[in-house]
Design a binder for these strands. Structure first.
Lengths: 204, 204
DNA sequence: TACACTGTAGAACGTGAGTTCTATGCTTGC
DNA sequence: GCAAGCATAGAACTCACGTTCTACAGTGTA
């Protein structure tokens, strides 16, 4: 697809990428020249024109630092396809798409301790991304805190939430554990929902 | 920590953030003025000086578009602490740290189908991040492909890998499934490891 | 009332920075 | 050997852009 880059062009392109990463803004033509040892700004412009023609960059004419990097992978990761965790007979379909790990901007992160959500495959050591502002629906996994000043004050727990007739059920995903029932009154006054789990992340 | 922002300062700060997100470079003082309806560039400079004093931005003096956003969360997410998935008696310790979802640059993504890694809590629909270049060790979860031209050619599978005496064991994490054994010779010629799973991601 | 603080406008200065033009070596293929 | 193409230098031009200075109006406080 893309035309090959000559050596000076490749160096310039690499420098622009590096400069943007480091400074949060594109370099000027003179800064590029200084970095790749080109004395003339006109000469830099010449190479930029080629880079533009080859599709590596775009430029906003007459604007300072007007270089726009194309293909600057926007913090997304390519989804190559699906993979069989089962029998090795399935193939890669080309479900071309992008997984944007940067889409989580409102969330904060908690690291999970314990086994109570294990049946939902949230394991000890996993990270959960919690959205403070999301709407809570029945069956959502939430972070709930008991706020009254008792022995377990400030205690937070990770559970699925279900609104029943006169009470709230906080349901662990672990068959060996019992749900917690909280009356509506107690719920309103003594408990607080810190947010809803929108994603799980695990490192190996 | 941070001083409050006055209305014009908040508008300017918001505009800078938005502009950077959209254009990949900071705005000029005149562009800021145009956006927040300030006629004088000196006036914009006045507000920027305050924003700098209050710690919201830094500036590289005399450089065009020299505004540097502080706290521009560098695609990382704050880890607020740990949370008990078990009994609601545990508390938030302040394990202040940052989870950098942008650290995955070499990996590509596959979406998992099937249940064969379920005992490792990799569920149907989860995304696995696969590193092509990582060193493979015993017990790692890998993407393996059978490359010979048979019925299941090109088939990829997600398994834990173990090197045994004269064979390779591809072990599913599902007690109802049996491991696949591959002889060393067959392994070298007919199989290919596409990479090692470095992380798991699940959206709700 | 006077002083301090914030918000605003206008103008002017000096340099930053994109652009354009002319010239000159290098290869490489015909 | 000559044309074509790439890489390079230097200079000049024209705005873009950060900075500085003066002035003034509104608001709150001592």
């Amino acid at each position: 697809m893309e035309a090959e880059l000559s050596d000076p062009q490749a160096r310039i392109y690499a420098f622009i990428n590096e400069y943007v990463r480091e400074h949060g803004r594109p370099p000027t033509n003179r800064e590029i020249g200084g970095a790749v040892d080109i004395q003339s700004t006109g000469h830099v412009d010449y190479h930029l024109t080629i880079l533009e023609k080859k599709g590596y960059i775009r430029r906003e004419r007459k604007k300072s630092r007007g270089i726009i990097l194309m293909h600057s992978e926007p913090r997304g990761l390519r989804i190559e396809g699906t993979i069989a965790a089962g029998v090795p007979l399935d193939i890669y379909p080309d479900a071309r798409d992008t997984l944007d790990l940067g889409e989580h901007t409102r969330e904060y992160v908690l690291q999970v301790r314990g086994q109570s959500m294990i049946d939902d495959h949230i394991a000890d050591g996993d990270y959960v991304l919690v959205d403070r502002d999301a709407a809570i629906n029945d069956g959502d996994i939430v972070v709930a805190t008991h706020t009254v000043a008792t022995a377990d004050a400030g205690a937070a727990t990770l559970k699925r939430i279900y609104k029943e007739q006169d009470r709230i059920r906080l349901q662990p995903a672990n068959s060996t554990m019992d749900p917690i029932y909280v009356s509506k009154a107690e719920w309103d006054h003594e408990w607080e929902v810190q947010g809803k789990v929108t994603a799980v992340y695990r490192r190996f």
